[in-house]
Design a protein around this nucleic acid. Structure first.
Lengths: 213, 213
DNA sequence: ATTAAAATGTGATAAATCCTCACATTTGCA
DNA sequence: TGCAAATGTGAGGATTTATCACATTTTAAT
């Protein structure tokens, strides 16, 4: 019985490549697979993406695909991981040098804009982070990513308000960050004009919470 | 070619029962189908729910199931519609008699608590509104529901601040409402203690936006 | 260079699932 | 009563994921 539980826990944790490509040849092929998947997701969404089509477009057999990805979700996960790594670097850089409230306003506003534009321009990212809730592993990746990003925010807040309750700051930052992701997802699912208004409203709300107390 | 496009557009719009049950017999059977689906979703989630299992548990043939529901999503949609209808009535009642800022605080805080507890207690609702993003039709149902609920809030705000920009009020209410749904979904996906803190933080943030200006 | 082992590649096919359809039965009603 | 509409059935078509036994290529040790 314990085995079953352990196995289930692993299932979510593994997800990544079933077998790491060590040779040059296979590394290139895996790249082609990811590129093919990315293109198909952009065209039809990850749900409509077919493994056979991914293999065909990557110029490999379906067997090869499953050699490196244990299942369909693993491909999406792999793409999602790249996005989170990239965006974390970007966010960390943007918040690293913030020293006062005015700087936070600037940096935060800019980050929201970047995120908004990214979602508008990147169908793959949009698809992955919109369908997130359906996939347990992806959901957890997103939560972990969000927590990591919120930490950057917490670091800034601790500098600006050293006497505030740390737990309170953590909660606020995490909430504000998640609200931001939700706001952007919402904004891209309505028409452009309303989306812009919603993002602007979110910015005001978030900044009021972050700097004005 | 145009036919294909038209058909695809309809596909999302129809969703509801393929054929309305007019006789008593079939109405009862449809209820059994929905009850079976509800139970299975509570046990395993809507994704793992199998049409064959729904039919079996409802004591009907798979053919009967498809007589009244065009596809799997339609069953989930039907359940979702009931929840939205119920909750809209509840929300409308709670906000109808609000006359001043203090009343709004009370009513809003109570609504958030109810919503939070509902998500904790209702696995079906949790499942449906968490996997929302994957299904275009469901996503639109949720958006429409959210807009309708935001309207109740707008009505209150217009009473409290008759000189404010109506468009601005709409935007704020819609955003606040969506953030609330996101906050509750977030809260139930972390441990209880953190979830409580997040909901409390959301309440403060939202109320500050709604009444304090 | 030889060769064994490891890594990689292939595609027919097993398995799971959704949904349809031709036909049977029951109900409402003229 | 009898007929048309509504309802009920479940085997089977169609699609798609994922596996597996076997073939080929690469690595590295002798």
């Amino acid at each position: 019985m314990e085995d079953k539980v352990a196995a289930k826990a692993d299932q979510a944790a593994i997800a990544s490549p079933r077998r790491a490509p060590t040779q040059q040849r296979s590394r290139e092929r895996v790249e082609r697979m990811l590129a093919a998947a990315s293109a198909l997701i952009a065209e039809q969404g990850s749900d409509a993406m077919r493994m056979g089509e991914v293999a065909e477009r990557a110029g490999v057999s379906i067997g090869s695909l499953y050699q490196f990805f244990p299942d369909k979700r693993a491909i999406v996960w792999a793409l999602a991981e790249r996005y989170t790594a990239e965006s974390q670097a970007c966010i960390s850089a943007a918040l690293r040098d913030v020293g006062d409230a005015e700087g936070l306003k600037q940096a935060f506003s800019e980050l929201v804009d970047i995120y908004y534009r990214l979602f508008q321009a990147e169908p793959v990212m949009r698809d992955i982070w919109s369908g997130t809730q359906a996939d347990k592993a992806l959901r957890e990746l997103e939560l972990a990513d969000s927590r990591a990003n919120a930490e950057f925010l917490v670091a800034v807040l601790k500098r600006l308000r050293p006497d505030a309750d740390p737990v309170q700051l953590e909660t606020t930052a995490f909430l504000v960050w998640q609200m931001g992701e939700a706001a952007v997802r919402l904004a891209i699912s309505v028409d452009r004009e309303e989306g812009d208004r919603l993002v602007a409203a979110y910015k005001r709300m978030a900044l009021r919470e972050l700097v004005g107390e």
